[in-house]
Amino acid sequence: MSLIEGLNKIFDNRIRLGIMSALMVNEEVNFNELKELLDITDGNLASHLKSLEESGSIKVQKGFIGRKTNTTYSVTKAGEKAFKAHIAALEQMIKSTK
């Protein structure tokens, strides 16, 4: 099945898909904004971010706003490429079975 080749295992999850979608259209997004967007708990979001980071799809910048930590995330070049390929594979999947 050549169709499945483009589909990336790391994006095989709604939450990780959501995180990547948000990062693709924004230069950077912080933890709380992602949490609001996806409507999930801190722990759940953190674990998905971790796995995306470990796969090299996203990068993390830790900073401060006043005394509060502000952790922002952005997509890496490799992540952007992989995500685009994933979308193309999804589209191919729909077209080929029509």
Binding site: L17, G18, S21, A22, V25, N26, L37, L90, I94
Partner: peptide, 20 residues
Amino acid sequence: EQQQSLEDLQHIKKMMERSS
């Protein structure tokens, strides 16, 4: 699988719109 792909794409679109 096709249905799944379609729903994934719709989800991506929605998340891109909602975040930007």
